[in-house]
Simulated assay, not measured.
Amino acid sequence: MSSLKRNLPPLTSIIVFEAAARLGSFSDAARELNVTREAVSRQIRALETHLGLSLFERNANATTLREWSRPYYEAISASLESMARASQMICGMDDAEAEQPADTQALADEGERARILVVDDMPANIRRLHDVLRGRYDVVAHTSAGEALNWLASGGRADLAMLDVHMPEMAGYALCRRIKLDPQHSRMPVVFLTSLDAPQDETAGFEAGACDYIARSTAPAVLLARIGVQLELRQTSAALEHLLARRADRLDQAEALLAEIGQKIADYGS
């Protein structure tokens, strides 16, 4: 067994491959697993590199298993189902509960893309950033901190905020602190995109609550990659929070049941 384990690919890649093969679509697999399509593609590439084989026929409309991939998929699918059912039995979870989707602030692709809030007092900067982001994300832009705060207060929601530092009325650092103080938006990742690149400026950004600090000179591909990392981290965190909340609910229910049983025993004894 120990020698076999050395040939195993990462479990994450296996799970992503099974979903993509079963659903016939990287996008559908991303929605089911609650990750981005780029994350699915990356895991599939990692598995293909590990195996030294191309697993899928890809085109614009569909993803189809290659002939030699189907036996591999069938073996993996059966194994994952057995693992899932064993875990389900241990957790005491019924089928309906196991199929319930996570209630997270979804970061989706295609039909419902992630939304990025951009705040910069220079329209030219907003246009350049919009040109980079528009192919992947929905962009909501404001030219002042006050406008952005009013939009958030009126029910506006974003998956990530990108702020300039130097702005009239309210600097980006102060805006970030205001966002982090609002319970409705405190967990939204905030990234500073600025021409200021001194160490003390970067330190001030992180102290204000930002998760990343990016110079405007950063290449678009690197900028997109760093945004993608923060969105994936937020999505993973939301999924874990949901899981912990469900576990807490189950514990509360168990304690209530025990209290009820204890009361019945006490009433019976009296």
Results as ranks from 00 to 15, higher is better:
115 R>W: 06
171 A>H: 13
128 R>C: 03
126 I>S: 00
145 A>G: 14
166 H>P: 00
118 V>A: 02
179 I>M: 02
141 A>G: 07
153 A>V: 09
141 A>P: 09
153 A>P: 05
117 L>I: 12
175 L>D: 07
128 R>I: 14
134 R>S: 09
152 L>E: 08
169 E>Q: 14
169 E>M: 11
182 D>I: 13
166 H>E: 10
167 M>R: 01
163 L>F: 07
121 D>A: 03
158 A>R: 02
162 M>A: 06
139 V>A: 01
114 A>E: 11
128 R>E: 08
155 G>S: 08
183 P>M: 12
140 V>Y: 08
158 A>K: 02
143 T>I: 09
152 L>A: 06
178 R>W: 04
143 T>R: 11
172 G>W: 02
182 D>T: 15
149 L>V: 00
165 V>I: 15
174 A>W: 01
166 H>I: 15
159 D>T: 10
164 D>P: 03
154 S>C: 06
152 L>N: 09
116 I>R: 05
134 R>A: 08
148 A>F: 03
182 D>L: 14
179 I>T: 01
156 G>S: 09
132 V>E: 03
172 G>V: 13
177 R>G: 01
130 H>D: 07
144 S>L: 10
114 A>W: 11
148 A>Q: 08
137 Y>R: 06
158 A>H: 09
159 D>E: 10
170 M>P: 02
162 M>G: 00
147 E>C: 05
113 R>N: 07
130 H>G: 07
155 G>D: 12
184 Q>C: 07
137 Y>C: 04
170 M>F: 04
129 L>Y: 09
123 P>E: 05
124 A>F: 12
140 V>T: 11
140 V>C: 00
133 L>D: 03
135 G>H: 15
165 V>P: 01
127 R>M: 10
155 G>H: 15
116 I>W: 05
175 L>V: 13
181 L>M: 11
139 V>H: 02
174 A>C: 04
146 G>P: 02
140 V>G: 02
121 D>L: 04
178 R>I: 04
122 M>F: 13
137 Y>T: 10
149 L>W: 03
171 A>M: 10
140 V>R: 13
172 G>E: 10
160 L>D: 03
129 L>G: 02
145 A>V: 04
113 R>E: 05
126 I>L: 05
148 A>C: 07
133 L>W: 00
114 A>Y: 07
150 N>D: 15
121 D>N: 10
130 H>E: 15
133 L>F: 03
147 E>M: 14
134 R>T: 12
134 R>C: 05
144 S>R: 13
180 K>I: 04
167 M>P: 03
156 G>N: 10
125 N>K: 04
133 L>I: 07
137 Y>W: 13
144 S>D: 08
167 M>S: 03
127 R>T: 12
144 S>Q: 12
135 G>P: 10
151 W>T: 09
158 A>C: 15
119 V>R: 12
145 A>Y: 05
128 R>N: 12
153 A>T: 13
136 R>E: 11
135 G>W: 14
116 I>N: 01
177 R>D: 02
